[in-house]
Design a protein around this nucleic acid. Structure first.
Lengths: 152, 152
DNA sequence: GTTCGCCTTGACGTTTACGTAAACGTCAAA
DNA sequence: TTTGACGTTTACGTAAACGTCAAGGCGAAC
């Protein structure tokens, strides 16, 4: 791989670096998320492509669909001389940010719930010798000996 | 015993409350995520079922698959007298928590990226009269006038 | 008694996000 | 020259998470 002044990557390099299959990368191209250049038939990826790929995978991890991601990435590629679109994009960006901040809250809640769960288990482990019976409170947590309240 | 009336819900009540379809709820039951009781044919949901549903939707929002969620929920229902399983569950809980905390980091990064994007756009909007040209840095951000570096 | 509304259980359809297999090009080493 | 690694396109397959009928039960209302 000859090094020009701009660093480029092959598909397999990127697939190894990000631990995804080449197929996935091609799929992202099909969906327009990245548009690598070509040298003959073969794809060549610029640093920018690589950066986009990073963002794609980040956003995927936090639950965005590829079409969501596509929209977000579109916001980064605003055709020049379209300031109105710039303003629209700005709004969309901010929407996304508030959405993500909302996600933060959700995750906080989830973490809290799981930590609750940990405590319950730890108590349970601590009170091995004792017997404790508590159920059907407001929470999800509880060790169920009996099943559901079958109202037949 | 004075009649201890436990609050119950119908499928349509819950579907409206959580803004999902009854089909989704039945699907979750099929997958064993919830196990509502029956009154005749009809499902009846306890407060506990409702709480589980809440957790399911929360976890879904933060990117967990239903099978992930199933595993997490399983951790809440430990058959009594299985303390070894309790310890295992505890570990799994903590794994989940660190996973979620990792997610927090990812989202922080995504938010940061988006805020960067906002700034770029805002600058772009501010310098309407001027011309600015900067591209292919390390980041994803950049207004592309020309397409990819086609090395044919 | 029959219609209405809510619920049920199949069963097949759909979208997303790839996996996988086939058939082939290309280049460099053996 | 053949082999092997790496790449390509085309196309069908698949798992997840439901959506969407179809056909019907059942109690309340008219």
């Amino acid at each position: 791989m000859p090094e020009r002044r701009e660093q480029i990557f092959t598909i397999s390099e990127l697939s190894k670096e990000f631990d995804i299959t080449p197929r996935a990368i091609r799929f992202y191209e099909d969906k327009g998320l990245i548009t690598p250049g070509r040298k003959g038939l073969n794809r060549i990826f610029s640093k920018r492509d690589r950066a986009r790929l990073t963002l794609i995978l980040h956003l995927k991890k936090v639950g965005f669909s590829l079409s969501d991601i596509s929209q977000i990435l579109d916001l980064y590629d605003i055709p020049d001389g379209q300031l109105t679109q710039g303003r629209v994009a700005l709004l969309k960006f901010k929407d996304r940010i508030t959405a993500l901040e909302q996600q933060q809250v959700e995750i906080d809640l989830a973490i809290e719930k799981l930590k609750e769960g940990c405590e319950v288990i730890e108590n349970h482990l601590a009170e091995q010798t004792e017997r404790r019976d508590r159920s059907d409170t407001d929470g999800v947590i509880g060790f169920s000996v009996a099943p559901q309240p079958q109202v037949s």
